[in-house]
């Protein structure tokens, strides 16, 4: 197990470095013009631009620049906002708890509902309940986040007046954002779980479990579900990335001041250091979550460890 974790770590480190390199190179190749002026912002004086150029070594060769960039990154220094001159790291740390809370709560909710729906539809396969739920799942998977959110606001906040329009870090303020962000993941998980359960329910060991007189509930929930869970775990990891990316839109809809809102406002203000910082941090979190998911996966499925 330890060997597996170490091996997995060894793959993750260069991937993170490569990600940082991609973000670094994209900023220098895609946008025309002087990087120092770009990072310093439109309002910076020529002196400020020069100061930044020296500070970040932007007048030195690209590999040296990258080295300085990595060094700063390792110290948690993501530069300063081109608009407010505040350190980017401070602004991200302010916004991060909101995005992480939203994404984590959504992942938990989506997993709970998605797995339950999957088990129910598989158990009652091809009944009217299964068909109804499956149609709802297909429709749910096709509804864009930025329509689900406004529709939920319209129904629950404007018409029924039972929940606030504006999102906030309270239970009531998080219900609609979590549902908005989670509907796609829910749909995906329930489809996968249904397929997995159906496959497992037809296998020999389930027939054996039934034959030896186990109660149906024990067969489905203990014997079948545990094996159907394996593919679902991988999907949860992948979905978490989607949730992090999707939280940009959800935060925007509900006015939550998380990393997504920070990034979008920064894009509109051409505040490149902030955008770059958010992109790096979100990508880093995603990589870390996938690492953890892979390790969890190896725990559940011993076959993986000995590959």
């Amino acid at each position: 197990m330890l060997v597996y974790i170490i091996r997995r770590l060894i793959i993750a480190v260069p991937l993170m470095l490569a990600l940082v390199a991609v973000v670094f190179i994209m900023l220098r190749t895609v946008v025309p013009g002087d990087v120092a002026a770009l990072l310093a912002g439109d309002q910076a004086s020529p002196e400020q631009v020069e100061a930044l150029r020296r500070e970040m070594g932007l007048d030195r060769p690209i590999p040296v620049q990258f080295g300085i960039f990595l060094g700063n990154l390792a110290r948690g220094d993501l530069g300063r906002s081109a608009i407010t001159r505040q350190p980017v790291t401070a602004r991200i740390l302010q916004a991060m708890p909101i995005t992480l809370t939203l994404a984590t709560l959504t992942a938990l909710t989506a997993t709970l509902i998605g797995l339950s729906l999957g088990v129910i539809t598989a158990y009652y396969a091809n009944s009217w309940l299964d068909n109804l739920l499956r149609v709802l799942v297909v429709i749910g998977a096709s509804m864009p986040t930025f329509w689900v959110g406004p529709m939920l606001i319209l129904i629950f906040a404007v018409w029924l007046r039972s929940l606030p329009v504006q999102g906030s870090m309270t239970t009531a303020g998080l219900v609609l954002p979590v549902l908005t962000l989670g509907i796609g993941a829910m749909a995906g998980l329930s489809r996968l779980t249904r397929a997995g359960m159906l496959e497992v329910l037809n296998s020999d060991y389930i027939r054996t479990a039934r034959a030896k007189g186990l109660r149906e509930r024990a067969v489905v929930l203990v014997h079948a579900f545990r094996n159907a869970l394996i593919p679902a775990i991988t999907l949860i990891g992948v979905q978490f990335g989607g949730l992090l990316g999707g939280s940009v839109i959800t935060e925007r809809i509900f006015g939550l001041p998380g990393m997504g809102t920070l990034a979008i406002n920064a894009i509109h203000n051409r505040d490149y250091p902030v955008v770059q910082g958010v992109v790096l941090v979100i990508a880093g979190i995603y990589l870390l979550v996938n690492l953890l998911v892979d390790i969890a996966y190896a725990f559940v499925n011993p076959r993986i460890r000995y590959e």
Binding site: L15, A18, L19, V22, V23, M26, L27, V30, V31, F240, G241, G242, L243, L244, G245, G246, V248, A263, A266, I267, Y272, V275, V279, I282, A283, Y286, L287
Partner: peptide
């Protein structure tokens, strides 16, 4: 590498630039 970016973050970063 493109797939290592979560969700539409890569597209957002590219459009930002």
């Amino acid at each position: 590498l493109i797939l290592a970016f979560p969700g539409i973050l890569f597209a957002i970063w590219l459009v930002a630039l």
